[in-house]
Amino acid sequence: MRAFTYERPVDLAAALVAIGQPGARFLAGGTNLLDLMKVEAETPQHLVDVSRLPLDQISEENGGLRIGAMVTNTALAGDSHVREHYPVLARAVLNGASAQLRNQATTGGNLLQRTRCYYFYDPSTPCNKRAPGSGCSALQGYNRIHAILGASDACIAVHPSDMAVAMMALDAEVEVEAPHSHRRIKIADFHRLPGNTPQNDTILGAGELITAVILPPPPPGGQVYRKVRDRASYDFALVSVAAVVETDGERIRSARIALGGVAHKPWRALEAERQLAGVPLSDDALAAAGETAVKGAQGHGHNDFKIPLAARTVASALAEAAKQRKA
């Protein structure tokens, strides 16, 4: 780890000032930042510890939910309101990492997790995300865990979060603070595709701090989070699907589909959702939606299997969600 200075500001205002120092980064749970600092994929000169800022509350707001950025994964998944009304979110969070990490990782930090691409973690190899312009080792290398949607020639990494996939299906918004600004960003806009600047995972500006995630009122219908992985637990997704399906028993009223493990950002399958609205519930309709969800997907060799896997997992998650028929 490269040397850095450390401070723990007393309040939000002080934190937003402190982050103005050269090479400064916010530290919250640290479960990813510290991990990356140890391999020098991240080399902050100054850490601004925001883990004790009073941003750890979950409260109801306009029929939805306001989740403080410092709410831990454990607290989020354990919240009775989340369990009752946003089970897809609770499930997604519980499917991520380990209990120890969830006890520490925060909501804001989870959104800012960086990719698990092997090459990103290994400074001995080229990586455009870690060292812009050095090249992408994964493109012609071992890319079994990499993106099939929205990738670029510069980067085929995927976003590793489970939580963000559920939030994508729930149309969450990210609340962001800077010394002289306050904004809300739709989660669909928060993470970006790699393009030619894969070093930027999100649209966050310098010095901006996530203070909360806002959930709109829970969508009608059954909610399912399905994570496909090599191990039964403690493993990143090969593919994951957050599905919300509302039916009248025979017809699909509405559906929401978000995918993880397939792109540089949590991926919303809007066309597949539109295709399902109002059609009779059938295995064929769900399978077709799965196919639509991966339309235009491109494999890079080792990850070709993700295309049919994603399609099938979408269909299976939709079927499970439709079965729940939650009003």
């Binding site: 530290l27 640290g30 510290l34 120890q100 990490l101 006890n103 520490q104």
Partner: peptide
């Protein structure tokens, strides 16, 4: 944070000691 061998209780909550800066 990939193995759990360093798990300790921080204010009664289990965490990976390797993923915590002492300073924080």
């Amino acid at each position: 944070g990939q193995c759990g061998a360093c798990t300790v209780l921080v204010d009664g909550v289990r965490k990976n000691a390797c993923m915590n800066l002492a300073a924080s």
